[in-house]
């Protein structure tokens, strides 16, 4: 697969093993600008490992992660985030001691303050732009800003984490099972929210078990099994692929 001009993320021949286990073998994947790319596969197929490699939590044994023409391999997580990659985790990673509003303000500060800025005498309230933007996003995901985030339901925590990632305006958003543990109703509202983001032209990579979510969002699907990509194509192609049927969908 040759990356063309539209490619935002290119995962080039990435290999990662833990001891004798080949978690990822020769993964080669291109994600086009503005698309939603779903990665599906059975448990233990290496989906989360793949995302961990992309955000710098793990360093691949071989291969490279190229984002927007720039190699990310070996960079630290905060540099990768600053380059424009944000991630929603499988178990929501939020600031449980802070309020919903503060949770969203922190990532907004990151663009200017991320690498380091010493401003202990400045009042946070002077960052009116950050406040306004945070309030707007919180409204978008349907939360109330003054709530303590620690007592939110799991679904709400996920929505909050999504709002935190969106507040950074990343070029690439990685979502690890964004609807896991959500009710049908919450799942549908999350799908609507993700569709709305798509209109803004943000590129997304989604790991998902729920086929309803996958087929209503994805432009392209890659199927991962035992650390290898066994199929890659449009939702229609993947749905009809005999290999996939056998390995995953119902075989």
């Amino acid at each position: 697969m040759n990356p063309d001009n539209n490619t935002v993320l290119h995962i080039a021949d990435v290999h990662k093993s833990f001891g004798g286990l080949h978690a990822l073998s020769d993964i080669d994947l291109s994600v086009k600008e503005g698309t939603t790319h779903a990665i599906i596969g059975p448990n233990g197929a290496g989906k989360s490992t793949l995302l961990n490699v992309c955000i710098g939590r793990l360093i691949p044994d071989r291969g490279a992660i190229i984002f927007d023409g720039e190699e990310l391999t070996g960079k630290s997580p905060h540099e990768i985030n600053q380059a424009g990659v944000a991630r929603v985790f499988q178990t929501p990673e939020i600031f449980t001691e802070l309020s919903v509003l503060e949770n969203v303000i922190v990532p907004i500060l990151s663009k200017k303050d991320g690498s380091y800025r010493f401003n202990p005498m400045k009042n946070l309230k002077q960052r009116k732009d950050a406040y306004d933007e945070a309030m707007h996003l919180i409204e978008d995901v349907g939360l109330s800003p003054s709530d303590p985030s620690g007592s939110l339901s799991r679904g709400d925590k996920r929505r909050l984490e999504l709002a935190m990632c969106l507040s950074q305006h990343p070029r690439l958003l990685l979502l690890d099972e964004p609807t896991a543990g959500m009710s049908r109703h919450d799942t549908n509202s999350t799908i609507e929210l993700l569709k709305k983001i798509k209109e803004r032209g943000m590129t997304k990579v989604v790991i998902e078990h729920d086929m309803h979510v996958v087929f209503s969002l994805a432009d392209r699907i890659s199927v991962l099994a035992e650390g290898r990509i066994i199929a890659d194509g449009t939702p229609e192609e993947v749905k009809n692929s005999a290999v996939v049927q056998e390995a995953y969908l119902g075989g």
């Binding site: 955000i55 997580p77 905060h78 600053q82 990673e93 600031f95 922190v106 663009k111 303050d113 202990p120």
Partner: peptide, 22 residues
């Protein structure tokens, strides 16, 4: 201050801080 909020963020969830670009 914003600096103080960053410190509180580190206390609450340092992993999130790193993956948020801090």
């Amino acid at each position: 201050s914003p600096f103080g909020l960053v410190l509180k963020g580190i206390k609450s969830n340092q992993t999130r801080m790193k993956f948020t670009g801090f």
